[in-house]
């Protein structure tokens, strides 16, 4: 199957990614595309792009897509899914979008057990606007709006979405994965597949949180960024499956 591995998934348009060198958005786009291909769902899929670096994800994914206002992707996906209950409907959101301005939409879509999938990119800062403090920025982490490092006394603590949502009854599948090694990327692919399958089986809300690098805004080289993620983000955001409902 080596030929298949190196060819472009049908669900990717082939447009060159605009992402920075070492950013893992491109890898995740590809994983999503591969899983959609594998499940044969490209013509039944409606994706929702959010506001952030991935705002034009619809240029890369060759499927029907809507672009949502900042934080509102789960509400937009809810509207789509309620009209088209047999389609694969998913959002692709960053941490500022999902865990800050769109926290209410995320939590309530999860609580309703909305049969959508959320692909959640956690890179511990607002990437598109140039690296500001995000709800996921680690204690002490320097960003352009926490120049002295995140002071938890004044700026509070990061939000662990998986742990929070796992307390709800609505989600069917919740998993946190990472992109810092090939083994982790393989796990990420499996998690995305399980999430999509949970949705298509009508089991409830599913979400995959993916820890990603942002070398440009972190001020690190790509390889250093991988190391930084592993050393700093993994302890704070432990990977694993946080909820697996029966039947997933």
């Amino acid at each position: 199957m080596s030929a298949a591995v190196s060819s472009r998934p049908e669900t990717l348009t082939g447009a060159p990614f605009h992402y920075c060198p070492g950013c893992t958005h491109g890898i995740i786009h590809r994983l999503v595309a591969e899983v959609v291909d594998e499940l044969g769902l490209r013509e039944k899929a409606v994706g929702v792009a959010s506001v952030g670096c991935s705002v034009i994800a619809y240029n890369y994914l060759d499927m029907d897509m809507q672009q949502a206002a900042h934080g509102r992707a789960p509400a937009v996906a809810t509207g789509i899914k309620r009209v088209l209950p047999d389609r694969l409907v998913f959002t692709y959101q960053g941490d500022g979008d999902l865990a800050s301005i769109g926290l209410a939409e995320t939590v309530h879509a999860a609580a309703r057990g909305e049969k959508i999938t959320v692909i959640f990119i956690n890179n511990a800062n607002y990437g598109m606007t140039g690296g500001q403090l995000a709800p996921t920025t680690l204690p002490g982490q320097v960003t352009s709006t926490s120049p002295g490092g995140r002071d938890v006394d004044k700026m509070g603590y990061p939000i662990r979405m998986m742990e929070m949502l796992a307390t709800l009854d609505g989600p069917a599948y919740l998993a946190r994965v990472s992109t810092h090694s090939p083994a982790q990327i393989a796990k990420t692919r499996r998690a995305v597949k399980r999430a999509f399958e949970a949705q298509m089986k009508g089991l409830g809300f599913s979400m995959v949180e993916i820890l990603c690098t942002c070398p440009t805004n972190w001020g690190l080289k790509p390889v250093e960024a991988m190391k930084w993620l592993e050393e700093n983000m993994l302890p704070y955001y432990p990977p694993g499956e946080y909820k697996v409902a029966e039947g997933v």
């Binding site: 929702v48 809507q66 509400a75 937009v76 509207g79 789509i80 309620r82």
Partner: peptide, 13 residues
């Protein structure tokens, strides 16, 4: 806010 964005999604569908 969520309601109008659900309208966006449904209208788009």
């Amino acid at each position: 806010v969520a309601a109008i964005n659900m309208v966006y999604g449904a209208a788009g569908a």
